[in-house]
Every structure is written in structure tokens, then in C-alpha cells.
């Protein structure tokens, strides 16, 4: 018996289509194939016009994220065998993003949000190179390391209903990345970022659905990062209420 699996792929050609429609492709069912292999098979052997992003095939580049049977997945890490021989698998572009063509989403909005959180080390003083490197103990690294594993695959945006409902919401990955720098003992920009992100479209837009964390292929836990950020922002609010204008050295506050 021939081993087959059917992929129902969302197709959208902006020059002629009003909206996306599905096209079915039958591909060989091979237990070592991931969904991305099946897409490559279709593009090479069946329909060269199928358009999607991919690069590394090993869960590092973060470009092959798609909705597979309604779940945000890295297609390079999603095996056909998990759907079974003869199954029908739906492949769509990541949810809540504008679609450019077929399975390719527009990322410009996400990149603006990513930059808005200032994801780099902010220093109030910049010591000369001769002063040597900034030192960090393994414990200090461990505090933020989990949040630094993000590969910007945007699966968490496709999982988050708030992203869909509130297009201006900064979103899970960017907020987690802000927290990654806030918790880095070399960074002194927590106060500046708080001013940008303690906002209804920043951390307060999140309702802790928790889906971002569940779909994250790198176990970043953006939901946890945002709740921790909320707690910190709320305590800063109390501090500002009791001691108005009492802002001190932020570098002392980065450790919980």
C-alpha cells in the first residue's frame, strides 16, 4: 500500500486573489520527513510557485513557522508521522499576521515592535575599553538566560489572541526580550523601558492566556516574563506613589 499524506495548503496570490484558498497536495508519507520536507517536495516536484520561508532546517533560524492543523509550529520540527499515514494536514501562514503570498507573512510590524523595547544593553556610563569587560557570574547569567533564547520565529504572536484583537499590542516575544535586558546586571535601561512598556499596549495588554509559552519552541516562557514585568511595574508604581520622583540607580534593582 502506498504511503501518502495530504497537505491542504493555503494559497494566496496578491495579483489575482481576493483572499486565500486551499489547495490539496498528495505527498509521500515518510517517517523521517517533517512538514518542511513535504513543502520542499511539492516545490521541487509538483508546483514551483508555492511560496514559503525557510532556511536552517534545524530550529535555529526561526523562519519556517506556520500554522499546522491550526497550531503554530516550526515546520522543520513537526514530523509528518505525528499526524499519521493517510492523514490530511492543513498548512496556513502564521495567524494574525498580514499575508504577502501563500505561506509568507509580513514581519515589518513585528520588527517595529521589537525595536521599540530597546533590546540592547543600555548604559548610563560607558566605561573605557581599558577598564575591561563587564563581569557576570553564572548566577547572574541564569536569571535572564531563558529569556535570551528567542529566535524571533513569531509563533507566540500567532498563538496570542490579544495580538489578534489589539494590533498595537507589543506582543510576547518583544516584551520577553525587554525583560531579558531588564534582568541583565550589565544593563541600566530598566527605567527607560518601563516608561515605554508600562502601558495598555505594553505589559498591561497581556491577560496571561499563556499560549505564547506553550507554543514557544525555545522554552522562553514569554507569559512568565510579562507577569514578572507586571509585578515589577506595579511595585515601581507603589514606590513612585510613596516617594514621588525617588528614582535611584536602576542597576541595583535588576535583581529580584
Amino acid at each position: 500500500m502506498a504511503e501518502k499524506i495530504v497537505l491542504e495548503i493555503a494559497r494566496y496570490a496578491p495579483e489575482k486573489d481576493e483572499k486565500p484558498s486551499f489547495q490539496s497536495f498528495e505527498v509521500p508519507f515518510r517517517k523521517e520527513w517533517v512538514v518542511l520536507d513535504a513543502l520542499n517536495h511539492i516545490k521541487d516536484k509538483v508546483d514551483g510557485s508555492l511560496t514559503y520561508r525557510w532556511s536552517c532546517r534545524m530550529g535555529v533560524c526561526g523562519s519556517c513557522g506556520m500554522m499546522v492543523n491550526g497550531e503554530p509550529k516550526l515546520t522543520c520540527a513537526t514530523f509528518l508521522s505525528s499526524y499519521g499515514n493517510g492523514a490530511t494536514v492543513r498548512v496556513e501562514p502564521l495567524r494574525y499576521f498580514p499575508v504577502i503570498r501563500d505561506l509568507v507573512t509580513a514581519l515589518s510590524d513585528f520588527l517595529v515592535k521589537l525595536q521599540s523595547v530597546k533590546p540592547w544593553l543600555i548604559r548610563k556610563d560607558e566605561p573605557p575599553l581599558s577598564a575591561g569587560e563587564f563581569l557576570q557570574t553564572p548566577e547572574q547569567l541564569d536569571i535572564y538566560k531563558q529569556f535570551s533564547m528567542c529566535i524571533n520565529c513569531t509563533l507566540c504572536y500567532a498563538a496570542c489572541p490579544v495580538v489578534g484583537l489589539e494590533p498595537t499590542f507589543v506582543g510576547p516575544a518583544a516584551l520577553a526580550l525587554a525583560q531579558r535586558y531588564n534582568m541583565d546586571n550589565r544593563d541600566q535601561g530598566a527605567e527607560e523601558r518601563l516608561g515605554l512598556l508600562a502601558h495598555p499596549e505594553g505589559i498591561w495588554g497581556c491577560t496571561f492566556v499563556g499560549e505564547c509559552t506553550r507554543v514557544c519552541p525555545k522554552h522562553v516562557d514569554p507569559a512568565g516574563a510579562i507577569q514578572q514585568y507586571k509585578l515589577k511595574a506595579a511595585l515601581e508604581w507603589v514606590k513612585g506613589f510613596i516617594l514621588p520622583r525617588g528614582s535611584e540607580d536602576q542597576s541595583k534593582e535588576v535583581r529580584p
Binding site: 498580514p98 509580513a106 489572541p161
Partner: peptide
């Protein structure tokens, strides 16, 4: 500060509307 979506309007891109019943879309949302 509010982040302005830079993809607010683009004639060629398709934007799927979000259903009012999005919370029935998966048991996890429910």
C-alpha cells in the same frame, strides 16, 4: 508610547479578520 503598526494598510497583503467567537476556536482559548 504607542507602537503604530507599520502595516496598517497595504493593498496587496491579506489580513484575516478575527472572529468575535475566537474563544471557541480552540479548547485552550475556551
Amino acid at each position: 508610547m504607542s507602537v503604530q503598526p507599520s502595516t496598517e494598510f497595504h493593498p496587496r497583503w491579506y489580513r484575516a479578520p478575527v472572529s468575535t467567537y475566537w474563544w471557541m476556536g480552540s479548547w485552550r482559548y475556551s
